[in-house]
Simulated scan of single mutants.
Amino acid sequence: MKRLAVYCGSASPEDPRYLALAREVGTTLAQRGIGVVYGGGRLGLMGAVANGALEEGGEVIGVIPEALVNSEVANHNCTELLTVSGMHERKARFTDLSDGFVTIPGGVGTMDELWEAMSWAQLGYHQKPVGLLNAFGFFDHLVAFNAKMAEVGFVRPAHQGILIAEETLPTLLDAMASYEPHTPIFRMKAEDL
């Protein structure tokens, strides 16, 4: 994996563990020679991921919608800052530029990015690993919800391994590196659906 898209929040929670985690993610990816593709912001967890990677000499590509650049939240310290027209183009660029996706704590936008990466993998728009760093149990309920969808039958058996959830970054990166792509819906026969 040469580059990973990192999905995370632009907020700075009161609990300092979240910003420290984000910085650690950026630092670790840079130390492993993995470039960061992220939302291009300088605030919150986004800024911490970018700063961690940049301080270690890593590549950081920010992809930010024009409206947010104009709000003065863009991180102009990135290796490369790409300005796009909107959120749809932003997520498409994340997919084009990265070899996989890592989601760390965040809010609604972060969840949108995660679910789209999973949905696109399920359909066959990409065959890249989709990782979830479940630090501090932040995503316990989401992991349980994903399991519930599978249990009820809304996630086919062939797609139940798309989401790779781990509690530590090294374990997650190792699991992502050994990810075996599944059969996407686009290649399934009607009787398999």
Rank of each mutant, 00 (worst) to 15 (best):
P184A: 09
Q160C: 06
H182A: 10
A177M: 00
E167T: 14
F139R: 03
P184S: 08
E151I: 07
G161D: 06
H159D: 13
N134M: 07
I162A: 03
S178M: 00
D174P: 03
S178A: 11
P181I: 05
H159K: 10
A135F: 04
D174M: 03
I164V: 15
V143T: 14
T183R: 10
F145L: 15
I164P: 04
E166I: 09
A147R: 12
I185A: 08
A175S: 10
T168D: 05
I164Q: 03
G161V: 04
A158Q: 15
V155C: 01
L173H: 00
L173M: 09
A165H: 05
M188T: 11
V143D: 08
N134A: 08
A158D: 15
E166C: 11
M149H: 06
K148Q: 15
P181F: 01
L142W: 05
A158M: 13
G153P: 08
P184K: 05
L142P: 03
H141E: 12
A158H: 10
M176S: 02
G161S: 08
F139W: 06
G153T: 12
N146E: 13
M188C: 10
F154C: 09
L173S: 06
L163I: 14
E151R: 11
L169G: 03
E166P: 00
R156A: 15
P157H: 10
L163W: 06
D174G: 05
L133R: 07
G137V: 10
N134T: 12
N134E: 09
A150D: 07
E167R: 13
V155L: 07
A165R: 05
F154K: 05
A147M: 04
M188D: 04
G153E: 10
Y179A: 03
V143L: 06
K148I: 12
A150K: 01
H141N: 14
G161K: 01
K148L: 13
P184I: 09
L169F: 00
T171I: 05
Y179N: 02
M176A: 01
T183I: 14
L163G: 02
N146C: 11
I185G: 02
M188E: 12
F139D: 02
F139Q: 00
S178R: 11
G137W: 04
A165Q: 09
R187L: 11
L142I: 15
E167V: 12
L163F: 04
H141R: 14
L173K: 02
Q160I: 07
L173N: 00
T183D: 04
